[in-house]
């Protein structure tokens, strides 16, 4: 027994607009930025040089989180090693000192833990930021959108954007050179 589409409760997710060339999508991205859209993205079959500048993307704040992660790794390693081998149970090996100057012996572990913590921080904070893993995305409903993995360039605008308007955005997308514009809806 199939459920007719009319029976489903749907909500507007946003628009996808199709462009034919990298140059046109580049210009369109600039226009999008100038108009003031905030929740939108460009999808292309290959990386376009200068696109992040055209879109007005700033540097990622991931690096700051990773710096903290790396710092945590260094501190964990140093505290565990100094705490156990210098503080709690001073271990003297080959006449090496049991004070601050034994720090070279602890460097390899510190180095490795710094990298390990940084790598984990990158992976997991990235997953949190981009909200992965998820099973489905409304964009996958769009016929137009699939073209981005072949030979089309797509701009998607979310309805959550403060400047989004059901008719206005469609007209704006067409005015900046979109060949086709499609409304994307998500099922609730």
């Amino acid at each position: 027994m199939s459920v007719s589409t009319e029976d489903k409760v749907k909500r507007t997710w946003g628009y996808v607009a199709e462009f034919d060339t990298a140059a046109s999508v580049y210009e369109a991205a600039k226009a999008m930025k100038e108009y003031g859209y905030r929740r939108w993205d460009v999808h292309s079959p290959f990386p376009i040089h200068g696109m992040d500048a055209a879109m007005g993307l700033g540097p990622s704040y991931l690096s700051r989180i990773v710096f903290c992660g790396g710092l945590m790794g260094s501190l964990t390693a140093l505290v565990l090693q100094f705490g156990t081998q210098v503080g709690l149970y001073p271990t003297i090996v080959q006449g090496k000192p049991d004070n601050l100057f034994t720090i070279p012996a602890f460097f390899p572990v510190t180095f490795e833990l710094t990298i390990l913590f940084s790598a984990f921080t990158i992976l997991f904070s990235l997953l949190v930021i981009i909200r992965l893993p998820r099973l489905h995305h409304p964009l996958f409903e769009s016929k137009l959108f699939t073209g981005f993995s072949d030979d089309k360039f797509i701009i998607s605008v979310e309805a959550r954007d403060p400047k989004f308007a059901r008719e206005g955005t469609r007209e704006f997308l067409q005015s900046i050179g979109a060949k086709q514009v499609e409304l994307v809806e998500e099922e609730l």
Binding site: P104, A105, F107
Partner: peptide, 12 residues
């Protein structure tokens, strides 16, 4: 620089 120092320092 550290590797050079470390190996020599540790091997003693």
């Amino acid at each position: 620089a550290f590797s050079q120092f470390f190996l020599i320092w540790y091997a003693n």
